[in-house]
Nucleic acid binder design. Sequence first.
DNA 1: AAAATAGATTAGAACTATTCTAATGTGTTG
DNA 2: CAACACATTAGAATAGTTCTAATCTATTTT
Lengths: 138, 138
Amino acid sequence: MNNNQIFVKKLRSSGLRPTKQRLHICKVLFDRKDTFHFTINDLADLVQRQLNKKISLATIYNTVHAFKKKGYLKEISINSDKNYFDTNISNHHHFFNEGTNELIDLKDKDVGRIKIKKNIPGKKIKFIEVIVKIANNN
Amino acid sequence: MNNNQIFVKKLRSSGLRPTKQRLHICKVLFDRKDTFHFTINDLADLVQRQLNKKISLATIYNTVHAFKKKGYLKEISINSDKNYFDTNISNHHHFFNEGTNELIDLKDKDVGRIKIKKNIPGKKIKFIEVIVKIANNN
DNA sequence: AAAATAGATTAGAACTATTCTAATGTGTTG
DNA sequence: CAACACATTAGAATAGTTCTAATCTATTTT
């Protein structure tokens, strides 16, 4: 199965038709060696630079949100006036550099097991997100 | 020292003059039994309901941000289209109910010690934030 | 195969959240 | 107590996100 077929499958399974615009978004997101962190704006810029044609932000928003809902993208819980997404959907956490607003992956094994000793009746834990805020050491 | 004097001190030490508007914000934030979580909008509504007079959002923003900078308020790293602050500035974490967008405090002792096994040269850990996302268990 | 129809997609408008700015207010100093 | 300097604030401007209606695409009917 080539990349394009994979993208079509990803879009279809997310409930979206594989339009030209969306295939291009897929290419920017998934046709790369390493996973990466991005904001909606980062993505819009990348897509538009590569496509050399304006795509509606609405399309980018709805595609990203559909992928997030389906689990092909993760949203990162950082409140830094920017809203980050991650193409790395494996269980992992993040360093957040407060000086530069840079996110760095922490592999699951880099974080010791987290024990939650409190329970909310009727609720179950969906997942645990850890943000390690870092800064220059001086 | 009465409440008002405490508020004046808080404002002054945050680099803000104790204006009527700001003292009112302080009253809403700190003159209560329990700590609480809020968005800028929640706070604006509360202040305006109690004061029965419109206060500029800019004033609320700059007061909240000054308090945050000084450490009298904490911002919570949740990306739920809303930006939460917390009057509980002790070291603690949160449950986040994805259905209702409700935040629930997790005391420090409710979370086992978190071990970070990766190190970024030249950087030190400022603090660690844990968000435990919960949902109905069915 | 063409036309009609139903539903998805998209661009831009609308709305919301946040920051900026300039007019106003307040405190301080001579 | 007047004049100045700086802080504060309201509303304007900007940025971020969602909504909506015109357009496009796929499917069904003839």
